[in-house]
Design a protein around this nucleic acid. Structure first.
Lengths: 194, 194
DNA sequence: GTCTATAATTTGATAGAC
DNA sequence: GTCTATCAAATTATAGAC
């Protein structure tokens, strides 16, 4: 067992991915450092060598996942021109992420970060959600969307899709996400388009 | 202090309301029974006299709040005829509840109940959310809404409003909820109406 | 029915060998 | 850099007086 030495980067990633899985399954507070240690097949000392504290581990995980989510949204928006296409690309990418990496999306959408990261900004103030608002703002400026408050447009345009993601993560959908996404997105667009 | 004896019902309600406030402020796991005891000005023994365990307290609170939320949504829907009016009445009532009893709405929308109440159904399967789906189903049956999957219609119709409530509870809105609600609801309706 | 005192575990974190 | 052993504090819950 301990003969198979892995690189420190590998160990660090193993700790992060194990913590993510357990945090999503049971929540941050219901997961002890001992649980992470056991699930990762490591020792307490090893975990505390890589992270100063349990909270520091959670913060590193949070930063990492916000970065991954930002990349997903950013790449989607950049690949298109119109607000309609940007928005739809984001919606499609979010759904794909929810199916391929449900833990990522779950942690971003569901976890109550401020309970264990007191100084973290609310998740809706982070870059991925700011980008969605920018798509709405661009649509209003270009005339694709009706003249309205940017926040209202953003909430109306993406609210249905985000709600759909919540339902998917709660396991209450009968079919795969893709079976609902097209119609939900179209309804959202129809609600704000001029 | 202990000369002022209150009724047992009062004590029970005091424990529940204190627990609700702390659970919303810090979360279930970050709130110890000792915290509740101190904030309520009671003793540990008194709390354990009224509730079998911390989890039983949380379950009683959960049941109580789902009941209150059900009443709010039920009364709103009953007071109107058309799907449009029912839906808008529900949206208005939810926003009023979010301003008058933010702790109630926060606990229902934000708390990760399944982390501490393992056998509780997902919140979106509870009666208040089922009623919203029924409003959408009624609208489709009557022809007010386009023909579509009931879940899609429900998500598209109420997704924006629920998203707006989340933002309000996260404290990222500049104005009172009422300043956004009208337009968000209208966009949702426009997205699904025939 | 409420109190104080305390038991039994679990938790996050550290020390020091290898 | 990883391990084992252990600590100090906090947590849920109980016992028993009043």
């Amino acid at each position: 067992m301990s003969g198979i030495r892995k690189s420190p980067e590998y160990t660090r990633e193993l700790i992060l991915s194990t913590a993510l899985r357990l945090f999503v399954e049971r929540g941050y507070f219901a997961t002890s450092v001992h649980d992470i240690r056991r699930a990762a097949g490591l020792s307490t000392g090893s975990i505390y060598h890589h992270f100063e504290s349990k909270e520091a581990l959670a913060r590193a995980l949070y930063d990492d996942l916000v970065k991954r989510m930002t990349a997903i949204v950013e790449l989607s928006a950049e690949s298109c021109q119109s607000a309609h296409d940007k928005g739809r690309a984001i919606a499609v990418a979010l759904c794909r992420a929810a199916e391929e990496s449900p833990e990522l999306v779950h942690f971003i959408l569901h976890a109550r970060h401020r309970e264990f990261l007191p100084e973290a900004p609310p998740i809706c103030s982070t870059r991925p959600f700011e980008l969605m608002k920018q798509v709405a703002a661009g649509g209003i400026a270009s005339g694709e969307l009706r003249q309205m408050d940017v926040l209202v447009a953003s909430v109306a345009l993406f609210g249905g899709v985000i709600r759909l993601l919540h339902l998917s993560l709660d396991g209450v959908l009968d079919k795969p996400l893709a079976g609902y996404l097209g119609d939900v997105w179209e309804a959202g667009w129809r609600g704000v388009s001029s």
